[in-house]
C-alpha cells in the first residue's frame, strides 16, 4: 500500500486508520536506507511529500513555524544559526533536498542534528490526529527513550514552532569535513531574556540537555568561572557510550570542550547587558 494524499486531513485520516501499519514517508532518507539494507522493511507508506503547505516555513509573532515537510535545505537558509548550521551539516545537497524536519524528529536518533538544534531553542512540536485534533508538546518532553518519542502511531508531526530571535551557537564533531554522522554535537541557545539551553547529540540514548549546566549559567552568568563550572557539569550530566564511532571518554570530554567554546562564542556575540539571567 502506498498512499499519496494531497491534504493534511486526508493524511491524518489514513494515519488514524492504519496506525503503525503505515509508515509516514517524508524525504525517505532514513526509511529507504533501511529498505535497501534488509529484505524485511516497512511495506506500506504514507507519502507526505504532496501535502499542501506541509513544507512551508512561515514567520509568526517572532517565531518560525515550519511545516513537518520543511527540508534541511530550507532550514539551512533560516537565520537561526544553530539550526541552519546543523541543517547544513546533514548529508550532502541531495540529502538536504529530501530530508525533512518531521523525518528527523520521527526517527529521533540520538545523533539527530536537527533535533539537537531544536532542543536548544525550546521548539514546540505540533502533533495532529484526525479526530483528537492537535496537541503541542515542548521538545524537551518529546524524546522519551532510544528512538522513542511522544508521537503516537496514529498521529503525524504537522509542524514545529521555534523562536526566531534567540542567539545560538552550534558545533559538530565528525571524522571528516562533511557528510558526517556526529561523534558529538552541541547546540546552545540563549533567549533574549538570557535563558540558556545547552543541548547535546550522541551522548545519551536521546538527544539531551545539560540542565545543571544551564542552571549554573542562569545563576552566575557567562563569567569565565561559571562557564568552566557549566562545562564541568555538562561532562557529568551526559551518559555517552563506547561504540564504533568513538569512545565514551572522548565524547564526555568533548561535551566540556564544546560547552565552554560555544558559551564563550555566545558571550562574545552578546550585547553588553545580556548574559545575566533575569
Amino acid at each position: 500500500m502506498f498512499l499519496q494524499p494531497r491534504q493534511v486531513a486526508e493524511a491524518l485520516e489514513a494515519r488514524a486508520k492504519y496506525g503503525a501499519e503505515i509508515t509516514p514517508l517524508g524525504g525517505g532518507t532514513d526509511i529507504v536506507v533501511v529498505l535497501n539494507r534488509q529484505s524485511t522493511g516497512p511495506r506500506h507508506f504514507l507519502d507526505l511529500s504532496r501535502l499542501e503547505n506541509y513544507a512551508a516555513i512561515r514567520r509568526e509573532n517572532g517565531c518560525y513555524v515550519a511545516g513537518g515537510g520543511a527540508t534541511f535545505a530550507q532550514l539551512g537558509r533560516l537565520e537561526v544559526k544553530a539550526l541552519s548550521q546543523a541543517a547544513m551539516t546533514v548529508g550532502g545537497a541531495a540529502i538536504r533536498n529530501a530530508g525533512t524536519i518531521a523525518g528527523n524528529l520521527g526517527t529521533a536518533s540520538p545523533a539527530g542534528d536537527g533535533c539537537v538544534a531544536l532542543l536548544a531553542i525550546d521548539a514546540d512540536i505540533e502533533l495532529s490526529h484526525a479526530t483528537r485534533g492537535r496537541r503541542v508538546i515542548p521538545i524537551h518532553e518529546y524524546f522519551t527513550g532510544f528512538r522513542r518519542t511522544a508521537l503516537v502511531a496514529d498521529e503525524l508531526i504537522t509542524a514545529v514552532r521555534f523562536p526566531a530571535d534567540w542567539r545560538t551557537a552550534w558545533y559538530k564533531i565528525g571524522k571528516r569535513g562533511s557528510i558526517n554522522i556526529s561523534i558529538v554535537c552541541c547546540a546552545i541557545g540563549m533567549s533574549p531574556r538570557g535563558n540558556v539551553r545547552i543541548a547535546f547529540g550522541c551522548v545519551a540514548p536521546t538527544v539531551m540537555r545539560a540542565r545543571q549546566a544551564e542552571a549554573i549559567i542562569a545563576k552566575d552568568g557567562l563569567a569565565d568561572a561559571s562557564i568552566e563550572a557549566a562545562a564541568q557539569s555538562a561532562m557529568k550530566e551526559v551518559a555517552p557510550i563506547d561504540d564504533h564511532r568513538s569512545s565514551a571518554s572522548y565524547r564526555r570530554a568533548m561535551c566540556g570542550v564544546l560547552t565552554r567554546r560555544l558559551l564563550r562564542e555566545l558571550r562574545q556575540d552578546a550585547p553588553r547587558a545580556a548574559g545575566r539571567a533575569e
Binding site: R176, I181, H244
Partner: peptide, 20 residues
C-alpha cells in the same frame, strides 16, 4: 569487534570528501 565488522557501510566507513 570480536570478529564482527561494525562499520560495513559508507555511513561509518568514511572516505575523504571534497572538503577534506
Amino acid at each position: 569487534d570480536g570478529g564482527v565488522m561494525r562499520n560495513a557501510n559508507f555511513t561509518d566507513y568514511i572516505l575523504p570528501t571534497f572538503r577534506d
